[in-house]
Amino acid sequence: MKNKTIILSAFVLLAASIPAGAHAMLDHADPRVGNTVKSSPSAVTLWFTQKLEPAFSSAQVTNASGAVVSTGASVSGTVMRVGVRSLPPGTYRVHWKVLSVDTHTTEGNFTFRVGQ
């Protein structure tokens, strides 16, 4: 029993001491996922759970007909900012695909609405 306790304790200490780097998952966004904003935002901002590799992380925003309405993305740490043109009322979809600094790839998408 004592040996088991020592082994378990060692593992927990090891896990706590090593800098981990999990998958970069979307934490939250502005505009908020699935929510409605009164007027066009100047950008969509995505917060992730891990630091991103800027060269391999990007996102784009499309309108209801699938046309791209974003102007480019920039990454700083765990935050990605996607510029958008002036958006008329409607539903927009954000597609993101990112690479965390430990080389895990993740992707996803969500919608938000403007002025509806």
Binding site: E53, A55, Q60, L99, T103, T105
Partner: peptide, 9 residues
């Protein structure tokens, strides 16, 4: 090899 990098849009 390393995990396949994401393809930027």
């Amino acid at each position: 090899g390393p995990v396949t990098p994401a393809k930027p849009f």
